[in-house]
């Protein structure tokens, strides 16, 4: 469960990137967040990852207030959230297997478990045969699949995807969205920030629209959602 209670974030006095935003996202939901550049989408993602602190208000994730998390506790908190970016952010000097294993190394997972878990994730994203390939040898869609596998390898409860299809052609974009939907079907809460309204409309999910730092609509394909 993700709850935002009257969250505001101002980078400079008088220019709020988020202005008094309140949201409830239930466990297991699939939510699109749409809006133009400067609408506050990226700020929202950064606040959810505790890269930034709100100027006012509170964010509660899985029952824990982010305001109460100390700096030293941030790494542990982030392990509950998988994150995927538009530019994939893979390590270019490591192959597919190592990129995914890296996420497990970071949290000191035993090697035995890594060896079991990484092939599972590779199968899930359909890249089992390419485990030795380097990012430069993969298409954009394949790179994003690796990024998704890396985001999910530590079994987070929430997956944040910031413009995951922004660098992909239509065909690959659909593949990635289908994969995110499958992940959501298995119980992971998925939050996707996107510009791709065609996909948003076709997916028939909950859509939160932001403009100039405020939520202007929150609906599920035609039906209005309590805000």
């Amino acid at each position: 469960m993700i709850i935002l209670e009257n969250v505001s974030k101002a980078y400079k006095a008088g220019i709020p990137a988020l202005n008094d935003v309140s949201l409830h996202i239930n466990t297991g939901e699939f939510v699109f967040i749409v809006g133009d550049s400067g609408s506050g989408k990226s700020t929202l993602i950064k606040l959810l990852l505790k890269e930034l602190d709100p100027t006012s208000g509170d964010i509660i994730i899985n029952g824990k207030s982010l305001n109460g998390i100390r700096r030293k506790q941030i790494p542990k908190f982030r392990r509950n959230i998988g994150v995927v970016f538009q530019d994939f952010r893979l390590l270019k000097d490591r192959n597919v297997y190592e990129n995914i294993a890296f996420a497990q190394r970071v949290i000191a997972t035993p090697t035995k478990k890594i060896k079991r878990r990484v092939p599972m994730m590779l199968s899930m994203v359909g890249l089992a045969a390419k485990y030795k390939s380097y990012p430069r040898q993969l298409s954009g869609g394949e790179q994003q699949r690796v990024a998704i596998a890396r985001a999910l390898v530590n079994e987070p409860k929430i997956l944040l995807a910031d413009e995951p299809t922004g660098n992909l052609d239509n065909h690959n974009a659909w593949d990635i969205m289908k994969l995110l939907d499958e992940i959501n079907q298995k119980g992971t809460t998925v939050l996707v920030v996107t510009h791709n309204l065609e996909i948003v409309k076709a997916m028939k999910k909950r859509v939160i629209t932001m403009k100039k730092g405020v939520v202007v609509s929150d609906e599920r394909m035609g039906e209005s959602h309590a805000d």
Binding site: L49, E51, K72, P75, K76, F77, R78, R79, V83, R89, L91, F102, A103, V106, I107, A108, R150, N154
Partner: peptide, 14 residues
Amino acid sequence: EIAIMKLIGATDYF
């Protein structure tokens, strides 16, 4: 790489 590590949940120590 450090930025990615931080987002994945690596500790300062790591």
